[in-house]
Amino acid sequence: MSEGSAEDDHLAQRLVDAADAASLPLFAGWRAQPCPADDPVGAAMQRVHVQREHRGACHLAAVRVYGLTAQAAMVVNLGVEQAAHHGWREPQPVAAALIPRRRRAEQLPGELQAPLYTAPTARQRTEFARLVDALTTSPTP
């Protein structure tokens, strides 16, 4: 990892540390896991994963806020076949009235996460995006 990416990794850790874990137990559990001290790339990947878990936990909360079950949200998004593929037993089509609820639920995670990304400077956000891109496009050893 280069010096710049080490700085970006510290930004990732600050974002993870600053996130509110209230009502987000899956995120809180992942955040509590120690990062590998001897693997900087692995530690960076873990921090990015924990940030993803924060977004996922916010999404699950939003789904519930808008009166959807996880299964109904998946059926609206991916369809009955994909819901079954992901392990839901005998998923059924959902009422058309639930579609606008899911659309609203898709907006809320971004609103919940926005405060995390206001503290870093524009340069830091750009460099962080570069780090994530580099981590996710690098060939695996």
Rank of each mutant, 00 (worst) to 15 (best):
M1G: 06
S2T: 15
E3I: 15
E3D: 14
E7D: 06
D8I: 03
D9R: 12
L11I: 14
L11D: 00
L11M: 09
A12D: 01
A12Q: 00
R14H: 08
V16G: 02
V16L: 04
D17F: 07
D17M: 10
D17V: 09
A18L: 11
D20N: 13
A21P: 02
A22V: 12
A22K: 15
L24T: 04
L24Q: 06
L24F: 11
L26T: 11
L26F: 14
L26I: 14
F27L: 08
G29N: 06
G29A: 12
R31N: 07
R31G: 03
P36E: 03
P36V: 02
P36M: 05
A37V: 09
D38V: 09
D39N: 13
A43W: 00
A44V: 06
A44C: 11
M45F: 10
Q46L: 11
Q46A: 10
R47N: 03
R47V: 02
V48R: 03
H49G: 04
Q51F: 11
R52V: 14
H54S: 07
H54P: 04
R55S: 09
R55L: 14
A57V: 03
C58E: 01
C58V: 04
C58R: 03
H59P: 01
A61S: 11
A62S: 13
A62G: 09
A62Y: 01
V63H: 02
V63K: 00
L68W: 00
T69N: 08
A70M: 11
A72S: 15
A73L: 07
A73E: 00
V75S: 02
V76K: 02
Q82P: 00
A83V: 02
A83Y: 01
A83T: 04
H85G: 04
H86R: 15
H86T: 08
G87Q: 05
W88E: 03
W88K: 04
E90A: 15
P91T: 09
Q92V: 11
P93N: 07
P93Q: 08
V94K: 01
V94Q: 01
V94S: 00
V94T: 07
A95Y: 03
A95Q: 11
A95K: 12
A96H: 13
A97E: 13
P100G: 10
R102E: 08
R103H: 15
R104Y: 02
A105Y: 01
E106S: 13
Q107E: 10
Q107M: 10
Q107P: 00
L108M: 08
P109Q: 02
G110H: 10
L112Y: 01
Q113N: 14
A114G: 04
P115K: 10
P115Y: 06
T118L: 14
T118H: 12
T121S: 15
T121I: 06
A122W: 01
A122Q: 09
R123H: 08
R123C: 05
R125C: 00
A129T: 06
D133V: 03
T136V: 10
T137R: 15
T137K: 14
T137F: 05
T137D: 05
P139H: 12
P139E: 08
P141L: 07
